[in-house]
Design a protein around this nucleic acid. Sequence first.
DNA 1: GATTGACCGAAATAGTAAAACAGTCATATC
DNA 2: GATATGACTGTTTTACTATTTCGGTCAATC
Lengths: 191, 191
Amino acid sequence: MAVVDRRQQVLQAATKSFSLFGYKATTMDQVAKIANVGKGTIYTFFTNKEQLFDEILREVMMDMKVIAEREIRRERSFFENLHRVLDALLEFRSEHELFIKLSQESRDFGTPQANEGLDKLENVVLEYLQREVEHAMDQGEVKPCDPKIVSLVMFRLYIVLTAELNRVHEPLTKEQIKNYFHLFLAEGLAE
Amino acid sequence: MAVVDRRQQVLQAATKSFSLFGYKATTMDQVAKIANVGKGTIYTFFTNKEQLFDEILREVMMDMKVIAEREIRRERSFFENLHRVLDALLEFRSEHELFIKLSQESRDFGTPQANEGLDKLENVVLEYLQREVEHAMDQGEVKPCDPKIVSLVMFRLYIVLTAELNRVHEPLTKEQIKNYFHLFLAEGLAE
DNA sequence: GATTGACCGAAATAGTAAAACAGTCATATC
DNA sequence: GATATGACTGTTTTACTATTTCGGTCAATC
């Protein structure tokens, strides 16, 4: 069995365990067992638990970037691209399961590694948003304003519409999310 | 010393203690001491710690409503009123200290009473916002859409601009908050 | 030379004794 | 005799300790 293969086995097992149980509740013995590998083997590829977790986050972030790039059509409008990308990210199960589990862990225990992980994932999205906003502003598609603020507001709005709202309201359809996203960000409420 | 007076003493002392130490870390002995009252006296006015806390929340919520009503000028536009009210509420320190302490407690310990208290305070604001949105929609000042969703988005946007943003950005001035609030909610970003 | 699991010290958890707490009520006060 | 009080009580929380679990190592194994 090739070296790359064992490394992959470990990464897959760890991804599964982190997504299922979170950072704290994932033990290295467990990862070794799921990966069908001696515990020591893990440490030939990764220096410690935290670095293994970082590696997985790196993979997730790379996946997210690939997904985002794939969905962008430069000939389409900024808002259309924006929604397509967010939609595609929402669709992606594996990224999402880890994200949700880490959110739970952050809320319930405040595990520092879960917090930092979430921050990293969030920052990838924010940086992507910021670049796109800047581009759209250059193109004159968006009014001039601080891209940092705009991207943060966009991200939060997306979270509110896709997650938070569900506590007081039945979940919105994709079409509704798209419409409200456009209503608030593009058109504005004023009649 | 009149009955009303002692009740007021207890309420003031409890408000102080809850604002300073939160729900969990406030003891009835402490409240009695601050109020210069025997502990038993508290229980002649309030059935238990939780009901005392509820009573204080009720007071805070009433204050908030009074503040909101006072700021509304029916001859002015919806967005102007909206901003004036949120501004006035932000200004109101005493309510704010309790709010901030409860937020801390909710984050650090997840005390159920702190969570419920925050939900109650939030709901007062949300209900107020919803009513105002409905009124503005009737007046044709705002495009027709679900007031529940709009009010939640407004509230979250307000939190992002006044609090969350400060972690990655220097705090905005009141004027800037007002401008961004108007930009996102009223005008929209699209050029 | 790659892989492993028994092994180690550190860290988390469970168990327990002690302290603090919410709420009561017999007594004190006016 | 109506009101106020703090010592008292059963329960919960906390502080402390014993035990277990876990991350990481490394001599033995394949």
